[in-house]
């Protein structure tokens, strides 16, 4: 099939950027979205143009490196799917596809579709961990964990840190990401000692980074490739109210 791509090109943080239109031909339905861009880039290189920069690594939906806003939707309209796992069979011959980077002030554009998500790491630094130096841990069976809690903690822990939630949120809020980690650790007995300080510190860091506040619009969970539920935000809110008072 043949497609028209409108791609955001921006040479660096200082450049103002613009949409550039490209035609791609002979796209196979079995290609992934990134493979389609690979084809475009191979052509651009040979034509002496600058290939479109985009982040990717695992290409199997787990590293969280890839991400672009496709036709206005983070990671594209296919639900629970990362950009690398989106396949061209979901597009039709002749479609026009708009491709933009994550848009949020705390995620400045590095180049084209590549953004800097270092803010997420700093949110984790603020408290997204359990302090346990190597070698100091008790036997793993010394603390049983209710299966339900373990399962719920796992659900929250599957966040891949892609940032689609921020890109989709009309407030540019990082609540889903932050809350996923707070919930994961807060549901486990191991996470209790630091539970209160964790939520206060992480929420504060989220604000300092310049993310917006959540007004429960739910756009984040809808685009989240791992289907992280709004439950985690509710949990974060509850923990925060408890800890901050």
């Amino acid at each position: 099939m043949n497609l028209t791509l409108k791609v955001w090109r921006q040479n660096g943080p200082a450049d103002s950027g613009r949409m550039v239109t490209y035609q791609v031909e002979d796209v196979s339905p079995d290609m992934s979205f990134l493979e389609m861009l690979d084809v475009l880039n191979e052509r651009l290189i040979l034509e002496g143009d600058d290939p479109v920069a985009f982040d990717h690594d695992c290409r199997e939906g787990i590293c969280g490196m890839c991400g672009m806003v496709i036709n206005g939707v983070a990671h594209g309209e296919q639900r629970a799917t990362t950009t690398c796992q989106l396949h061209m069979r979901h597009f039709k011959d002749g479609d026009t596809v708009t491709i933009e980077p994550w848009r949020a002030a705390p995620f400045p554009v590095v180049k084209d579709l590549v953004v800097d998500r270092g803010a997420f790491d700093r949110i984790i630094q603020a408290g997204g961990f359990i302090s346990v130096p190597a070698g100091s841990a008790p036997d793993a069976h010394s603390i049983p964990v209710k299966k339900e809690n373990a399962d719920d903690a796992f659900d929250a822990a599957t966040c891949i840190g892609c940032g689609a939630c921020v890109a989709a949120c009309p407030n540019g809020s990082a609540s889903l990401f932050t809350a996923a980690k707070i919930t994961h650790l807060g549901l486990l007995p191991q996470g209790q000692p630091e539970r209160d300080s964790r939520v206060v510190a992480m929420v504060e860091q989220m604000d300092l980074e310049g993310f917006g506040g959540c007004t429960n619009t739910g756009e984040c969970t809808a685009v989240c490739p791992k289907g992280i539920s709004l439950d985690v935000i509710s949990q974060m809110n509850r923990d925060y109210l408890k800890a901050a008072n």
Partner: peptide, 20 residues
Amino acid sequence: NIIDQAVAQGVPFAREYGGL
């Protein structure tokens, strides 16, 4: 020791109904 370390860090390994 790895399993002990990981569990203490909060790695949500699969568990059985007994919690183990």
